[in-house]
């Protein structure tokens, strides 16, 4: 464990909790893409199948349970509890255009052709594009609530920190995993546009609004 991975995990945790609190406190999931949240729940489900068979550390297990629990709770709140506030008209990104190619790629490019490994690879590839429906929804609505931008910033920052973690681990441990690194680069690059808007607007007290 190094400081970049730890802060990355904490940033990820902050993002997930922030979103949960936003929906719970405002009792509304306006501006939130349910499709992205479903894909994140799928990412955690396919990645943490070894939760009970492969114990690594209390930290690792606790974080996995929290991620799984929060992501399912978020999906539940969007599609059931606060369904009335779900903005389906703007959450129109075709998720199947992501899930199917990602599923195919996981079959073709992986470290080992076993079910658990393919599912893990699927979760890595899916996570790298899972935010697209959310970013697409913001371009459709032309704006985002400030709390939602903080959620997105923390979420984007987490994988950027993981990239540094992988540089660290390559340098000090000689470890590197090309699948995770390439997917992590794609994932972080997708946030660049948002990072620019977040830093130039939100951090200057402005509301994040796109030229409609």
């Amino acid at each position: 464990m190094n400081v970049f991975r730890l802060t990355g995990d904490l940033s990820h945790l902050v993002a997930i909790i922030l979103l949960l609190l936003k929906i719970w406190k405002t009792r509304s999931c306006a501006g939130i893409s349910g499709k992205s949240q479903v894909m994140f729940a799928l990412v955690f489900t396919t990645r943490y199948l070894d939760l009970f068979t492969n114990f690594i550390s209390p930290y690792n297990s606790v974080m996995k349970v929290i991620y799984l629990g929060c992501s399912y709770a978020t999906v539940y709140m969007i599609y059931m509890k606060f369904k009335a506030s779900y903005d389906g008209n703007h959450d129109t990104f075709r998720a199947e255009f992501l899930i199917i190619p990602v599923g195919g790629l996981a079959f073709l490019v992986n470290h080992e052709f076993t079910p658990l490994e393919i599912l893990w690879t699927f979760s890595i590839y899916l996570e790298s594009v899972a935010i697209l429906p959310q970013l697409f929804m913001i371009t459709k609505t032309g704006e985002a609530e400030t709390i939602t931008t903080h959620y997105l910033f923390a979420l984007g920052l987490y994988r950027a920190l993981y990239l540094i973690n992988w540089i660290w681990r390559y340098y000090f441990e000689g470890f590197f995993d090309l699948i995770a690194i390439v997917a992590g680069c794609v994932q972080t690059i997708l946030y660049c546009d948002f990072f620019y808007l977040y830093i130039t607007k939100v951090l200057h007290g402005k509301k994040l609004s796109l030229p409609a």
Binding site: R5, H12, K64, R169, F176, D177, L178, A180
Partner: peptide, 10 residues
């Protein structure tokens, strides 16, 4: 097997 990918990451 730890393999190329470390299972210890989230």
């Amino acid at each position: 097997k730890n393999g190329p990918k470390a299972k210890d990451e989230l």
